[in-house]
Design a protein around this nucleic acid. Sequence first.
DNA 1: AACACGATTTCG
DNA 2: GAAATCGTGTTT
Length: 169
Amino acid sequence: MERLDRDFFTLDVLEVARRLPGMEIVLRQGAEFKRYMITETEAYNGSEDKACHASRGKTSRNEIMFHAGGYLYLYFIYGMYWMLNIVTGAEGDPQAVLIRGAGEISGPGRVTRCLGIDRTFNREDIVTSERIWIETNGYSPELITGPRVGIDYAGEPWVSMPWRFMIKK
DNA sequence: AACACGATTTCG
DNA sequence: GAAATCGTGTTT
């Protein structure tokens, strides 16, 4: 297994979102290592994308999305869930990939809860972090694509863009 | 200072 | 179908 570097995460968000399924999130908890294969992602594609948090400009919450790829963006929603995102693309282009499924876990809120990922992971650099990173073994599973979930407010064309990627079972 | 709401999940 | 539950952005 090979740890992913800065070059990978600075690729375009659509490229990263469709390549992450099949790769593994590695979490280090003391001497323990836990691995979860990413099964589902969604791409949030910069300032033009009305479903992207950064579409209405930079705020203290989304500022990390404007960095170069490889940083984590954690945000809290519905009063109880943390959403795990990986920032992608070049500096100044606010893109991120939402991790919607890992291992046997389905649903972004359940992923963070099960993996123990919370606000302390916000802005973590997964290229250099000692506690979380991504590895690949070259496996590239067949994918199913579809529109993103829960973003009806974004309107067309964004609500219809096929930017959800999941491993075909 | 107050208010509205969300990249969800769970229960009835 | 609707509640749970609160940080964040926006309005007052």
